[in-house]
Amino acid sequence: MLEVRDLHAGYDGVEVLHGISLQVKPGEIVAVLGSNGAGKSTLNNNISGLYRPFAGAIAFEGTDITGASSERVVELGLVQVPEGRCVFPNMTVRENLELGGYRRGREHRAQNLERVTEVFPRLEERFAQLAGTLSGGEQQMLAIGRGIMTEPRLLILDEPSLGLSPILVDEMFALIRQLHGQGLAILLVEQNVVQSLTLADRAYVMENGTIALSGMAASLLENPDLKRSYLGM
């Protein structure tokens, strides 16, 4: 479904990613793990068309999207829920959700809105409230809800648990499981190693702009290197 081949990318001529290859198959949850500065967000930004890669190739459902514009990527159904949520603070919750259907999913906006409010009843209570006044957890819900409004075929979730309380983190992972249960393919980019591996089918571990480890999530959980570097065991 998503295929990244030997991707080199970075900012202002400084290379951050030194040849990343990964793939996501239909219906999978794939986790990309790594500490701060490993290059996870750079990877996302290049997949989503916010930046142009230096070299390598990205294909989505057989279409080459290397260096494509973000509009084009969204149009194809590859949707990112960014780190830091990036909701529109000056607009109401409802308007934020409606804009999710700006480029894609415009025809089914009403149905999609219903679907989102079924998943997040709390958002419906806050429909008329400005997004900037929501709590961090609610903003994260809104960001994901806005992503669902775009009718994604593959949803990239960048650090959805960042800045949430432990209870909300559990809720967030339960929600990701629920979305996946509806058949949505998910690329989960996280620092939260244990919970991500418990949820994912497969995982890649990034270090310094390269893939250090990859494999089935269950076997990675038992990997001694991973245990040592991320879990302190």
Binding site: E71, P82, R85, F88, R103
Partner: peptide, 23 residues
Amino acid sequence: TDTGKAIRAVAKERRGARLVGIN
């Protein structure tokens, strides 16, 4: 209108705007 809302979205949150496919 969608275009008007997109203008307001771009005014405050360009990254978020690009990620919903706003040019």
